[in-house]
Each structure stands twice: as C-alpha cells, then as structure tokens.
Amino acid sequence: MNSIDLAEMSNNFVYASMITLFLATIFFALSYSAGRTRAETRALVDSTGSVIPPAESSSSEAATTPANPGWRMANIGLSLSWLSAGLLLVGVIVRSLWADRAPWGNMYEYSITSALGILLVYLIWSTRRDLRWLGLFVTIPALLTLGLAVTVLYTEAAQLVPALKSYWLVIHVLAAIICGGAFTVAAATAGLSLIADRHWIKQLPSRETLEKLTHRIIAFSFPLWTFAVIAGAIWAENAWGRYWGWDPKETWAFITWVIFAAYLHARSTAGWKHQKASVIAILGWVAFLINYFGVNIFVNSLHSYAGV
C-alpha cells in the first residue's frame, strides 16, 4: 500500500471515530433528559399528593439503579464511545505507520492522540465503576479536540527535526498525553461537583462522591505528571545541555505541577477540601491547556517574530 493510501486511511478512521463519538454524545445527552422527565413526573405525582405505595418505592430506586430509562441511552453512548475509541486507535496507529514514528510529531497528531487519551482514561476507568453519568462530559471535550485537530491543526505527516528524535521524548509525551486525558476527566468531575448540589442533573452522584472521584484521578495522574516533567528534563539535558531552562513550555509544566500539588494539599486542609479544591483542580487543567495550545501558538509567533 503506498503512503498516500495510508494517510487517507488514517484520516478516514479519524472521521469515522468523530461521527461515532458525535452519536455517543447525543445518546449520553438523551440519557439525562430521559432521567429528567422521569424525575419531573415523579415530582408532579408527589405534588398532587396522590401517593401510591408501589410507585413510590420504584421511583426512589429510579435515580440510582439501571432501571432508570436514561441508562439504556447511556449504555448505547458507552458502547459507541468504545467503538469511537477503537476507530481512533486504528487511525492513530495508521498515522504513525505512515509517518514511521510515534504519533505526536505535530499539533494535529498530538491532538488526535490526546483525544484518544481522554476517551481511554474514561473508558478504562468506567470498567471499574459505573461512570455512565460522566459520559457526556468526556465525549464533548474529546469531540472538540478532534474537531480542532481536523479543521485548524491538520498537517501532513512529516519527518521530525533531529532534536525531536529521542526515546525520552516519546516517553515524555506519552505520559503527558495520558495525564492530559486524566486531567480532563478530573476537570469534568470537579466541575460537576461544583454544580451537584443544585440538582440540575438527577443522575449525578453526590457532591462528596464527585470530590472523591476527582481526588482519585488526580492522585493517579500527579505522580505520572511528575514523571512526565522529569522525562522532559532528561530529554532537554540530552538535547540542549541543561535539564531545566524555564522556557515557556517548561514554565507552564511547572505551573501545572504546582497547581495540582496545591490541589492535593487543599484536600488535606480544613476549609479547602471541597469547593475550593475543585476549583483548584479545574485551574490545574486550565494551566495544562495553556501549555498545550497557548504556549505552542504563542511560542511559534515569538519565533517568527524573532526571525524577522
């Protein structure tokens, strides 16, 4: 198969994955509205005062058990998400076969791999606990990342400049991509924990549960992020002769690290455990995004400015 075919094939898999993911998003969204109608009906019944014992017992279960009609939609959403992740995985692998290197040689490749990272962190986690309520808030960022990738960031595959050919770089970026996925999921649970008390969405777990889940993901990703930063430093030492030079990319990696360290501290500090900690978790994710989009674009423009 010649290389143009491989490129097209990769693109087609990415498009197929996006369509699937779009459908998954719709089903996840429908799962909430199905739950909501049910909850509203229940409220109506309650307010009329006509309390029928069997109905009451079933409705109290409805919000938590799979009997909730919304969950059927969410199950479809979940299956579609798996399918989408599978398609995207093939797309990423084919892309990397085409380019003959790790699939993160430019912003486009980095973005599609990151979208895969977001999906996989969520899906693998959801095999261990019921996370159907979270689906929508994961598929949307993944879909946005993919959309941005295929529209704005698309680049032909190309060889890496020599400075980017390094084992450590592969390890460093892989760890960063997994962290990106985890930080995104954490930002979703943290964000939901901030609105959980308002009962906008009936299916959401309690605020405490959401906070615990946020903590769990960050506790998993913080050591990995630490590792990613250190692997980057080892690479920088090999390429430029200094392991740390405070260039904007490094600076924002540091800022992200410090914010998540603050998050972990906040979780053990009275008065900071709850809403404030959740806000810090979201700030950490924002810092990660700034590093990912902001610095890449900003630094490029700096370079072209310096080159004039």
Binding site: P248, T251, V258, I259, T269
Partner: peptide, 21 residues
Amino acid sequence: SMKTALILLFLLALASVPGSV
C-alpha cells in the same frame, strides 16, 4: 501551617506566569 503552604504554592505558580509571557 498547611494553609500557608497552600497559599505559597499558589503564589509560586502565579509568580512563574510572567516568566513565560
């Protein structure tokens, strides 16, 4: 105190920002 550590961590993050801008 833990709260001071927290605030200092924040300040550290904040103080790094101009270095990248």
